[in-house]
């Protein structure tokens, strides 16, 4: 059970340490059910921290999103640690970043928050249209309770939880320096990739017309790329002009190339936090694309990214007996 007092105490202790630059957690947003990442440098700011079913942001992305500005001459680089609150899925992102050596273990402090699932904002706002009032929420025995000013409203968790949470197999952090409260029961959820199989069962023409409609609506704002904790190349191919891998123009050819490149770069790396799909302003089912590759990776290579800090990245390793029945 989420223990807010413990969380704030630990956060205050952590952020007071000399070797900690800042701590990243969640705070209530400016209206409705929104939550915003909260960057803390002073202990008193920790009072605003929350942990609730509304905290869907994967904060691991900020570990690699931070701009590396040139250090002025005569100054030393700031090598202090960054403290980070993680849910189960977020911790997989941290692990995968460690596996890929995108971050250094000694540069992060991981505060693990065992999690009972976060909500899908669209599902919630369908039930309770978002008003200006800031609404908090909490877990309560199979239900999500929303705390409105005129009383509480409980909803069965299945009705509002994000799809990724309904099939979550890693509710507890895979890796943490401090576990903030006791682990939650992993439950019996399994992941059969029903969404992927449904699409696979269609003909290639049907599949293309599905994706064609989806890719055409893309506005190329790149929020899916930027929010992804695994997308942290310093020089992304999408920004490059020489060679131009993907033209800037928005049409079905370039949009498809963009989505295929993005998905492929996550093959064997996607930890299924679902952030890309959550942030998409035009609601492209990006996870349905990513999950095809996670499924293949799991079936063909028995690999699950972000679960073992000692593993090697899938595409930087091989087994001589990898299956190859498609090769002529």
């Amino acid at each position: 059970m989420a223990d807010l007092e413990k969380l704030i105490t630990v956060a205050k202790e952590t952020v007071s340490r000399d070797d900690v630059k800042y701590l990243i957690g969640w705070r209530q947003g400016t209206y409705g059910f929104r939550v915003s990442p909260h960057f803390i440098t002073e202990p008193e700011e920790a009072d605003k921290l929350i942990f609730s079913p509304l905290c869907s942001n994967n904060l691991a992305t900020y570990l690699t999103l931070v701009e590396k500005l040139p250090v002025p001459r005569g100054q030393e680089a700031d090598t202090r640690k960054i403290a980070l609150m993680v849910k189960g899925c977020d911790s997989r992102a941290v692990v995968q970043q460690l596996v890929e050596q995108g971050i250094k273990r000694e540069s992060v402090i991981i505060l693990g928050c065992p999690c009972q699932g976060v909500v899908d904002l669209a599902k919630v706002e369908e039930k309770f249209p978002a008003g200006l009032e800031q609404v908090a929420a909490r877990w309560d025995d199979g239900k999500i309770v929303f705390q409105f000013s005129d009383g509480e409203k409980a909803v069965p968790r299945e009705e509002v939880l994000a799809d990724k949470c309904l099939r979550c197999r890693y509710p507890n952090p895979v890796l943490a320096d401090t576990l903030l409260w006791e682990e939650v029961e992993a439950g019996s959820s399994s992941d059969e990739y029903a969404d992927v199989s449904e699409l696979e069962a269609k003909t290639p023409e049907e599949r293309w017309s599905f994706w064609e409609a989806q890719f055409s609506s893309c506005v190329r704002c790149y929020s899916c790329r930027n929010v992804c904790p695994m997308c942290y190349c310093e020089d992304c191919i999408l920004d490059r002009l020489n060679p131009t891998w993907v033209n800037r123009s928005n049409n079905i050819s370039e949009n498809t190339a963009f989505h295929l490149s993005r998905a492929f770069h996550l093959a064997g790396r996607c930890i299924e936090c679902g952030e890309c799909e959550r942030v998409c302003p035009v609601n492209i089912p990006i996870m349905t694309l990513n999950r095809k590759l996670t499924k293949e990776v799991r079936e063909k290579f028995a690999y699950e990214p972000g679960t073992d800090p000692a593993s090697k990245p899938l595409q930087a390793s091989y087994r001589p007996n990898d299956q190859e029945n498609f090769i002529l």
Binding site: P204, A267, L293
Partner: peptide, 28 residues
């Protein structure tokens, strides 16, 4: 060996978005 892993996934991805399986092949 690395190529084999990559193109195993590439082939699946292309097929999944509806590019006919008959358009992409790999051989030794």
């Amino acid at each position: 060996y690395f190529a084999r892993r990559r193109f195993t996934m590439m082939k699946e991805l292309l097929d999944y978005v509806g590019v006919d399986n008959k358009r992409f092949h790999m051989s030794w």
